[in-house]
Amino acid sequence: MAVPGLTVPVSTPTLFIQPVKGVNRLDYQLKPYKKYLTNLHICKIPGNHWPFLSTPNIFNQVIADFLKDKIDL
């Protein structure tokens, strides 16, 4: 915890799925991601800390849409 996880910009397309009742909901918690992940996409979905269990269809669709948009299928 004494060393930041992100210290240099990363341009890889990155998807952050943010459940409305999960962790990392506050702006200060997302600040490092927004600062260093220069190709960050945030998608808010219903659910709790484990949206892949609580809302699996929505979770899977968000991932499929992201991959379809980023990868030439």
Rank of each mutant, 00 (worst) to 15 (best):
I42W: 07
F52L: 08
A64G: 14
A2N: 08
G47N: 05
I45L: 15
K21D: 07
V62M: 14
P56F: 09
D72S: 15
K31A: 03
L15C: 04
D72F: 15
F66I: 14
T12M: 11
P32Y: 01
I42A: 07
L26K: 13
P19D: 01
L73S: 09
N39Q: 05
N48S: 11
A2L: 10
N24L: 04
F59Q: 12
R25K: 08
H41I: 01
P51D: 05
V62L: 14
P51M: 02
A64H: 15
P46N: 14
P32Q: 00
F66D: 06
L37F: 10
V3W: 12
V23N: 02
A2H: 10
T55P: 13
I45D: 15
G22H: 01
P9Q: 13
V10I: 14
Y33N: 01
P13C: 00
W50Y: 10
I45H: 10
A64F: 15
Q61S: 13
L37M: 07
I58D: 15
Q29K: 02
N24Q: 09
P4G: 06
L30V: 05
G47K: 05
D69W: 05
N24R: 03
P13T: 02
A2K: 13
K21C: 05
I58K: 03
I17C: 01
V3G: 07
I63V: 15
N48P: 00
N60P: 13
P13M: 00
P51S: 13
I42M: 11
I45P: 12
N57V: 08
L73G: 08
L26N: 12
D69V: 08
P56R: 12
S11Q: 08
P9V: 10
T7S: 09
Q61L: 12
L53D: 11
L67Y: 01
T14R: 02
K68W: 06
M1V: 05
K70L: 09
P13A: 03
P13F: 00
P32L: 00
L37D: 06
T14K: 00
P51R: 03
H41W: 11
Q61N: 15
T12C: 04
F66C: 02
